[in-house]
Computed example of a mutant assay.
Amino acid sequence: MNIKPIGKRVLIKPVKEKERTKGGIYIPETAKEKRKQGIVVELGTIEEKEFPISKGDVILYTGYSSEELEVDGEKYLILDSKDIIAKIEE
Score class of each variant (00 low, 15 high):
17 E>K: 03
50 E>C: 10
80 D>Y: 11
21 T>N: 05
16 K>S: 13
80 D>A: 07
36 K>W: 02
16 K>H: 12
79 L>T: 04
25 I>L: 05
56 G>R: 03
44 G>V: 01
76 Y>M: 11
32 K>V: 09
7 G>E: 09
70 E>Q: 15
21 T>V: 03
73 G>N: 06
53 I>A: 08
88 I>Y: 00
1 M>L: 03
8 K>E: 00
62 T>P: 05
41 V>Q: 12
42 E>S: 00
44 G>Q: 11
73 G>F: 13
76 Y>I: 10
46 I>F: 06
88 I>C: 06
36 K>V: 02
40 V>D: 01
56 G>W: 14
75 K>E: 01
66 S>M: 10
81 S>E: 13
73 G>V: 08
19 E>M: 14
71 V>K: 07
20 R>M: 01
53 I>Q: 05
53 I>N: 03
80 D>P: 04
40 V>N: 01
14 P>Y: 13
33 E>H: 12
3 I>W: 13
89 E>C: 12
89 E>S: 14
15 V>F: 08
53 I>W: 04
56 G>H: 09
31 A>I: 00
46 I>H: 07
10 V>Q: 00
52 P>L: 02
23 G>E: 10
33 E>W: 09
29 E>T: 13
45 T>P: 03
79 L>A: 04
74 E>V: 11
1 M>V: 03
17 E>N: 07
44 G>F: 02
69 L>A: 07
86 A>F: 12
65 S>I: 15
20 R>S: 03
6 I>M: 03
4 K>F: 08
85 I>M: 12
84 I>N: 07
67 E>F: 08
30 T>M: 06
87 K>C: 04
78 I>S: 01
87 K>L: 04
16 K>W: 07
54 S>C: 11
45 T>F: 02
84 I>H: 06
38 G>W: 15
21 T>R: 05
34 K>N: 01
7 G>C: 10
55 K>M: 14
22 K>Y: 11
21 T>A: 05
33 E>Y: 11
34 K>I: 00
59 I>W: 05
75 K>C: 05
68 E>P: 11
76 Y>E: 07
50 E>F: 13
19 E>I: 09
9 R>A: 01
72 D>G: 03
70 E>D: 11
38 G>I: 10
14 P>A: 10
56 G>F: 12
49 K>L: 02
75 K>M: 10
38 G>V: 11
11 L>T: 03
50 E>H: 14
62 T>N: 12
47 E>Y: 00
49 K>I: 06
49 K>W: 02
53 I>R: 00
65 S>L: 15
49 K>E: 04
48 E>W: 06
45 T>R: 07
45 T>I: 05
